[in-house]
């Protein structure tokens, strides 16, 4: 039981970072970004690639580049077709698969991991918890606090909140909505990128990870309610616990099916999610 709790919290923390960005973009710009998992994987790969030259500092250029990539995706791919919902899905899905194939060609089908800066194991009531997993907990909490600060204390954050509530009214009061959308996309990409590095630090990434991550991101934001950042944070931990519990008690291969079925069940029974927002 304790194992499930501890490991669930840790994986849930990673999902928090993934899903809050995903949810933010949908809530603000109504963009369903199927390439969200790509940010996650791409950032991890860049950090791993630069590690031999920069050491742990490679995290910084990786996250910055991922943010830039998010901006490029929004500006050149998503923005032109933003009014056609299905086209947004198709174009981001095509992009996700394109990047996956490119990564496959460059890095081959090899699982890569990011070296962890800490080592050692802590025993909590007999359950071994590696230090590198505790690190994740710390980083995830710190990043979430930063996000909260950005959203509630900065001008841009307030613009984002305003736009998500009423884009037309925001435009009327002089908010540059396009710019708000770009910034949201950049923030979302960077959050996913950080999560990617954290994930690669304890597990490993391979090009196919992006679709896997996307599935969990979907499950979480739909459970938490599309567009609700707080809902998705709570849902992240719920999904994290479910995932670990199923892995421990049954079979990890069922964990993904459970996530997928959650999506469909919630959509059919309660399309607005647990903490539904309009």
């Amino acid at each position: 039981m304790l194992e499930i709790l501890i490991y669930g919290i840790i994986i849930g923390s990673i999902w928090t970072l993934v899903s809050s960005g995903f949810s933010l973009v949908f809530g603000v710009a109504r963009i369903l970004n199927f390439a969200h998992g790509t940010f996650f994987v791409l950032c991890a790969y860049i950090a791993i690639l630069l590690f031999p030259y920069l050491g742990y500092l490679s995290v910084i250029p990786a996250v910055i580049f991922t943010g830039l990539f998010g901006w490029i995706v929004y500006r050149f791919l998503v923005s032109p077709v933003r009014d056609y919902e299905v086209m947004v899905i198709l174009i981001t899905l095509a992009l996700a698969l394109l990047v996956e194939e490119i990564l496959l060609a460059v890095f081959k089908d090899v699982s890569k991991s990011f070296p962890s800066p800490v080592s050692g194991v802590v025993f909590v009531a007999g359950v071994p918890v590696p230090m590198n997993r505790l690190l994740i907990l710390g980083v995830a909490i710190a990043v979430t606090i930063c996000l909260e600060y950005f959203m509630s204390r900065t001008k841009m954050g307030k613009f984002i909140t305003a736009t998500s509530q009423d884009p037309e009214a925001s435009m009327l009061v002089g908010i540059d909505v396009e710019r708000v959308y770009s910034v949201t996309m950049v923030v979302s990409a960077m959050l996913a990128g950080i999560a990617g590095i954290l994930y690669a630090q304890i597990y490993s990434v391979n090009p196919a990870t992006s679709l896997r991550v996307l599935i969990y991101a979907f499950a979480i934001v739909i459970l938490g309610g599309l567009g609700s950042v707080r809902g998705s944070i709570v849902a992240s931990y719920i999904i994290g616990f479910i995932q670990v519990a199923i892995s421990m008690l049954f079979d990890p291969r069922w964990a993904e099916i459970a996530a997928l079925l959650t999506i469909i069940a919630v959509l059919i029974v309660r399309p607005k999610g647990l903490f539904g927002v309009e």
């Binding site: 369903l32 919902e85 299905v86 899905i89 899905l93 679709l211 599935i215 979907f218 739909i222 079979d251 291969r253 069922w254 993904e256 099916i257 997928l260 079925l261 999506i263 469909i264 959509l267 059919i268 399309p271």
Partner: peptide, 28 residues
Amino acid sequence: AICLRLRGYYLALVTAILPLICIQILNV
């Protein structure tokens, strides 16, 4: 019968997920 009640995003989303469930079931 289940999905056609959903519109726009939701129909696309649910149907996009169905093949993934099938693939997972093939694996399990």
